[in-house]
Design a protein around this nucleic acid. Structure first.
Lengths: 127, 127
DNA sequence: CTGCATCCGAATGGATACTG
DNA sequence: CAGTATCCATTCGGATGCAG
């Protein structure tokens, strides 16, 4: 496979962005997801992650590599090519991420309802 | 139960602090854990969380309440008393947290090893 | 006791521009 | 293409002090 990544893979409008769960840095989980389908190149990752600047993406990738979540393979060609891929450890994290996503799917309604209820509450005892 | 919380429940030296997960804000997960055994009072939470200032704890609690993770019960007594307890939603999150902790337990070795390997690496191609 | 207000410092995340 | 370097804005966590 390794079909191109969908540019709208992480729609900013997606309500899951307000989920109370985070893996690593802000973009770590998304990178994990992007890498799920096979190795990806730096620029390739920037497509669905178009909100991230190269600097931040590089930092994220670097820390993920440091933690053994991904592998960086640089090919000394011209033009240069670098590929990032998931390690077994990264894959195992993916499972956890999946659990988190399940939770989100399952309880998003409650969450939204809770927020709505909370917002509509201030008219209580006091003012 | 509701026995007193252990002051060293979250030892700063605990290596799990470097884990790549986070639920909500920095302290959310710990509050969740503290509330696992039953309702707790504000000051009571400050014992194991002695590193957190009242302001931040209040903020954390507030946002957790907003998300329907906990319930805040204020008793208009003298002296004032306020108790926080987990909602079903909070409990369900606890399960997820548990999954995360399992992952940590299981893969912490890999993580530490990866970091060590990464640190010891810079002597590669170049200087 | 509870927890809000103000001010502050550190850390993140990011924009822009430049290099191998 | 794949980053790095510099600078900047915002946010976050926190210290201190005050109020109900």
């Amino acid at each position: 496979m390794t079909a191109g990544l969908q540019p709208d893979m992480f729609d900013p409008a997606c309500p899951t962005t307000v989920m109370p769960f985070q893996i690593g840095d802000k973009w770590t989980a998304m990178v994990l997801l992007c890498l799920e389908g096979g190795p990806r190149r730096f620029t390739e990752l920037r497509v669905p992650l178009r909100r991230v600047t190269p600097k931040v993406l590089a930092e994220t990738l670097r820390s993920m590599e440091r933690d053994g979540l991904i592998t960086r393979s640089a090919y000394d060609e011209n033009p240069p090519r670098v590929e990032y891929s998931l390690t077994p450890l990264g894959h195992s994290l993916l499972k956890l991420l999946d659990a988190a996503r399940s939770w989100c799917t399952e309880h998003m309604g409650d969450l939204v309802a809770a927020r709505a209820a909370f917002t509509a509450r201030p008219a209580a005892t006091g003012s």
